[in-house]
Design a protein around this nucleic acid. Structure first.
Ligand SMILES: [Mn+2]
Ligand SMILES: [Mn+2]
Ligand SMILES: [Zn+2]
Ligand SMILES: [Zn+2]
Lengths: 141, 141
DNA sequence: TATTAGTTTATAATAATTATAACTATGGAA
DNA sequence: TTCCATAGTTATAATTATTATAAACTAATA
């Protein structure tokens, strides 16, 4: 709680009740929530929360570099709180977006083909570990 | 023209007038159009074309593996006709999506961290060659 | 107290995409 | 030729994520 406030302050974001809760949810959640998932979680603690606040807060967080926006799913934006750059797996079975710790060979390159590279976004499509082991368990029956 | 028909037929897609024209546009265009860009181009030749047809056709093409869907821009889907897998640069200046021919070290890996990898999607964010040289020209004034 | 800036909320507007149903072209059977 | 089935196209409406707008609230400050 105190930690979260400090994190917000360090980015010059006024630590309102709503903002603290949203950051708390982002921190807890592993698989890259969309606005609606965050909103549903918030409702449990702040029943008067508005979806606009979630949108506003997330775009503030993104501006201040506190979260990264992932355009992996075509339907809606996903939000990523983890600090270090990394890649993702989009599971075509369960729909989750999962962190994958692989290094990109080009992660330290700032120039390719004359283009200036500022950010690397990579993701894999496939079937996640959990879904695979679920498949196996099914087959053994 | 004959080529385009053959391409469609080889994928079991009936080569209607509309479909041929859409494929033709995709082939000509380098920077990964969205539905509206394709629609606007089509209007010049088929003034009665419907946007629904563009959507239907592109989703057929995608199903049959003729195009790839890019979720790089958050606003809308972009379509990629090139056959070989490759990466992209999203220029934050001009908004274009440009092919970048870099190899991915993991392109032949089918398994990472126990997850099954079926497809690799990667893109870079930055400023493209053309925008950079435009900047330089400005400065010299 | 009155004022102000910053934050949250309710509500409406926008825009990409999908769903639905009517219309059209085509090719074969009768 | 006429009828019919099918696939493809079109117009239109519905859905849904996101953004815009303005009102209400909060906390700090003169
Ligand atoms: Mn992540
Ligand atoms: Mn491409
Ligand atoms: Zn899964
Ligand atoms: Zn550019």
């Amino acid at each position: 709680m105190e930690d979260l406030i400090k994190i917000l302050q360090s980015r010059n974001i006024h630590p309102s009740h709503q903002r603290i809760k949203i950051l708390e949810i982002l921190e807890k959640n592993e698989d890259h929530m969309n606005v609606n998932m965050i909103y549903e979680e918030l409702l449990k603690e702040i029943p008067t929360i508005s979806k606009t606040t979630v949108y506003n807060t997330l775009s503030t967080f993104a501006e201040k570099g506190l979260v990264h926006c992932l355009t992996i799913t075509p339907e809606e934006m996903r939000y990523d709180y983890r600090a270090n750059p990394h890649h993702h797996l989009l599971c075509t079975r369960c729909g989750r977006i999962i962190d994958v710790d692989v290094q990109c060979r080009y992660a330290d390159t700032m120039e390719i083909d004359g283009h200036c590279i500022e950010e690397i976004q990579g993701y894999f499509k496939g079937i996640c570990r959990e879904c695979l082991s679920h498949d196996k368990a099914q087959k053994q029956k």
